[in-house]
């Protein structure tokens, strides 16, 4: 019941905000117009990604066997699991709005937590299209340094966190 109430308030707030944006446009209030532009920019970016992402998540849940995920990314997977996590992260599009649901899907199929956190961390810093973009603006050496330093740290911190949370019987929820 409490959840329903908070989500009602949330929708109300969002509605008020959007109405504010429309009014700002009518009275030509500059900050409001800029806000509206940023808003639609963000929405446009995500609307392009969402259909693919959630269709693929659904297909993954239905078709990929739990044993397959457990073998490649589960408790007994060894270092191979981390390689899969990095490959998956490199090809993920859409940022964290996509990586969190994917993390849950992997968790539900019994991938181990250290691999999942590696995936989430790596998806933030080394998505392939973004990396090419970055190297174009800041130079290959900059990007290379970032990779060489951050990726091992992501894997290491994920192993530490995963080990600790695994002992606490931690669960990733559905969102």
């Amino acid at each position: 019941m409490k959840n329903k109430k908070t989500s009602m308030t949330l929708w109300l707030l969002i509605g008020t905000y959007l109405m504010g944006l429309v009014i700002a446009r009518q009275v030509a209030w500059q900050p409001g117009i800029t806000m509206g532009l940023h808003w639609s920019e963000f929405i446009k970016g995500m609307v392009k990604v969402f259909p693919c992402a959630f269709v693929l998540i659904g297909l993954f849940e239905v078709w990929i066997k739990r044993e397959t995920v457990e073998r490649t990314m589960g408790q007994a997977s060894g270092w191979g699991g981390f390689v899969w996590a990095l490959l998956l992260a490199g090809t993920t599009v859409g940022g964290m709005f996509v990586t969190f649901p994917v993390a849950h899907a992997l968790h539900a199929k019994r991938a181990k937590l250290s691999v999942i956190f590696t995936y989430v961390g790596a998806a933030a810093i080394c998505r392939l299209p973004m990396t090419l973009f970055e190297a174009g603006y800041l130079g290959g050496r900059f990007t290379l340094v970032r990779f060489v330093v951050s990726l091992p740290l992501v894997v290491l911190s994920s192993i530490l966190m995963g080990g600790w949370l695994e002992r606490c019987h931690y669960r990733i929820s559905e969102g």
Partner: peptide, 18 residues
């Protein structure tokens, strides 16, 4: 699969908008 995808999406949609 589509139903699962949709339910995952509709769960995060309000937070996403926020």
């Amino acid at each position: 699969a589509l139903a699962i995808g949709w339910s995952r999406f509709s769960k995060v949609a309000p937070t996403f908008l926020q």
